[in-house]
Computed example of a mutant assay.
Amino acid sequence: MTLRLMLVAPVTTAALRGARFPVDEPPDAAGLRAARAAAGALPRVDRAVCAPAERCRGTALALGLRVTGEDAPADWDMGRWRGRSLAEVSAAEPDAVARWLADPSAAPHGGESLTALRTRVGAWLDGLPAAPGRLLAVVDPAVVRAALVHALALPPQTFWRLDIAPLALTELTTRTPPHWNFHCGARLQAPGDAPPGQDG
């Protein structure tokens, strides 16, 4: 039997719209409208969990999910860079940013390195019960990317090449953990909506 894990990225927030490193803030109004509209497109699930961030909780609520008390992995801890844009940090700390982008073990911001993020998310992924069923988790894009890198044993630098859009659904399946298969993500959309890129 198959465990089907569905990872859904939260909707937009003010920080995300401003291309800033995330802070713990609620979804914006446009994001909540998008989540409510997409609620009917969610696949059937047996259980739902959610990351502790307010944006993830708000997204899960807008999608109409009943989440358990268990937390899914929290977002990447960006330390003192939280709330700042990459452009701002690059101008102020160019050497630190270059080291962060080149070395997965570097954490010049004082938060969590990419290696630490992958290890933490991978431990959660591999620790999921092997019982068959459908588990949905609302988690931040960095967590989805780290899960894919871990599950598929990809090189760490692949993390930077993965783009996860708001409300994107990414699916991993397994019959024998920790061996996972990946199904390419699809954006959730309300019934009757045109697929992305086909707005008429």
Rank of each mutant, 00 (worst) to 15 (best):
M1T: 11
V8C: 10
A9W: 03
T12P: 10
T13E: 13
A14M: 01
L16N: 13
G18H: 11
G18T: 01
A19L: 15
F21E: 05
V23R: 15
D24A: 01
P27T: 07
R33K: 00
R36I: 08
A39W: 06
G40H: 09
A41Y: 11
L42S: 08
P43S: 10
P43T: 07
C50L: 00
A51D: 06
A53V: 12
E54D: 10
E54H: 12
E54W: 14
R57P: 05
G58P: 04
A62Q: 09
L63R: 06
L63K: 06
D71V: 00
D71C: 13
W76A: 04
D77Q: 09
D77N: 12
M78Y: 14
G79Q: 05
W81A: 07
R82F: 05
R82E: 15
L86V: 12
L86W: 10
A87V: 12
V89Q: 01
A91I: 00
P94A: 02
P94E: 02
A96L: 05
A98C: 08
R99V: 11
R99G: 09
R99F: 07
W100V: 02
L101D: 04
P104Y: 09
P104A: 08
A107P: 10
A107H: 12
G110L: 06
S113D: 15
A116K: 00
A116Y: 00
A116Q: 12
A116V: 13
L117T: 07
L117W: 11
L117I: 08
R118P: 01
R120Y: 12
R120V: 01
P129F: 00
G133F: 01
R134T: 15
A137K: 04
V139Q: 01
D140V: 01
D140M: 13
D140Q: 14
D140S: 14
V143I: 08
V143C: 04
R145C: 03
A147Q: 00
L148I: 13
V149G: 05
A151T: 05
A151N: 01
L154R: 09
P155G: 02
T158D: 11
L162E: 01
L162M: 00
D163E: 12
D163N: 10
I164P: 04
A165L: 13
L169V: 08
T173Q: 10
T176W: 10
T176P: 02
N181R: 15
F182G: 02
A186P: 00
L188W: 06
Q189M: 08
D193R: 14
D193E: 12
A194H: 10
A194P: 09
G197A: 00
D199I: 10
G200M: 00
